[in-house]
Design a protein around this nucleic acid. Structure first.
Lengths: 236, 236
DNA sequence: CGCAAACTTGATGTTGCTCAAGCTAGGTGG
DNA sequence: CCACCTAGCTTGAGCAACATCAAGTTTGCG
């Protein structure tokens, strides 16, 4: 997402060329980096749990994180897969409203909530920038509601594949799928069996190839686009 | 939502006691009211359409609005029912990302986008306040994803009734439902028949009463709470 | 090499959708 | 004032998409 040169030497050392500070100017960035700490999580590790005291805000520097909510009986809805540049924990003060877990090896930048709040007041443009980030998230959330409420299994899986493809700059149809079928199912409101079957059907129809379960190759991009958009009755 | 005394004489005249300006201080409010215009929409009228140029931001002063997104073949997902105090059109600049329509008679306050943007820069605390509003919306959206992806029809309808009840201060179990079964269905990712049947079943079970289709009486609040939360297998 | 986790595939079941018919209520014109 | 008309709602019967249950298969790792 961000491509400008990082101001933070620590970050630069770890992930060359990857900026933090949400695209703000030099001064703001310098202020922000003064109160960050950088650390890592292994795949499967929990960053924080829904209901925990939200004393920090996190920025993903590298890797992929899933966020989810649970029903009392264990049913899970994954509300997002977040990669580098995304913020975690911006929600209402007090407590986190979702659980966050690492899917891949993840590098995180942690901001203390209190210091972060102070920055919002003191650094011109910072709140505005955060507002843009939140609006963007809201837009994504509404698209996902349309998917969950009104798309068929095939349309959901097609949309997911295109989301993954778009998240990777890789335009050549090679898509990495770092999460399990269970994650995909809980993101799309399906079961793992339906996800697996739908992928098999797309493969059989020549729309995709599946060299390995975690590696999808898009063979017929246009057809996938149409499926994802829900254009025709043929989609069913 | 807002109960403080309005500073804007026009608003006061129309809707006594209802504030605008998003809970900011006197100075900010004075600045904001300088660039507002107030007007009304009849039930069924469109405020704006997905894709329209987003040159304004709206605050609902009175009444209820629905916002939705469409698939090319007409399938509709209602992403929210918004009442007084809510903002419309905050999403990414350029174009509206959803369509907004009046459900009841609605009074709106319109802010010019450019002026609104200037306020964000000039009025201290304004962007922060908007960020809180957007975060709150995001939280609601994630709850709705959980509902759409993982709840049964009964759980969805129960959740909806509680949402409506919560939106009205009326704690006595009397809930007004100003929208049609079609709106409810498109909000919950169901069909009108399933919504109707589910309401009938809840009535039959003594959980609610239905004096008229648009008027629900909650008879067994606890049972409805449990259903909405998805506590037990009995929910199915 | 063996084991466990993840994935795939098949058979059967159930929820919610589709199609269809009748009901209710509010508004309009004769 | 009443009858009609229409939009919205309810109810029923049959069906399809997706879930559930149940084996197998593959893969990665110790």
């Amino acid at each position: 997402m961000q491509t400008e040169v990082a101001l933070n030497a620590i970050v630069d050392a770890v992930v060359p060329g990857r900026s933090i500070g949400l695209g703000l100017g030099r001064r703001a960035n310098a202020q922000i980096t003064a109160l960050t700490s950088l650390y890592s999580k292994a795949p499967g590790e929990t960053l924080f749990v829904e209901g925990d005291e939200a004393d920090s805000i996190y920025e993903i520097v590298r890797g992929m994180v899933r966020i989810h909510k649970l029903l009392p009986d264990g049913r899970r809805q994954i509300t997002g897969f977040l990669s580098a540049g995304h913020l975690l924990g911006l929600a209402p003060e007090g407590a986190f409203v979702y659980t966050a877990e690492a899917i891949t090896e993840v590098t995180l930048c942690r901001y203390k909530r209190a210091a972060f709040d102070r920055l919002i007041d003191e650094v011109p443009g910072f709140a505005k920038r955060l507002l843009a980030v939140a609006s963007e998230e809201l837009y994504r959330a509404q698209d996902q509601m349309l998917l969950l409420g009104r798309k068929s299994a095939t349309e959901k899986v097609a949309s997911f594949l295109l989301l993954m493809a778009g998240q990777q700059d890789d335009e050549e149809g090679e898509v990495e799928v770092p999460m399990t079928r269970s994650d995909i199912a809980d993101y799309l409101g399906l079961t793992i069996e339906t996800v697996s079957r739908t992928l098999s059907k797309l493969k059989q129809d020549g729309v995709i190839a599946l060299p390995t379960p975690a590696h999808v190759e898009i063979l017929a991009r246009e057809q996938l686009d149409e499926l994802a958009a829900g254009e025709t009755v043929a989609a069913c």
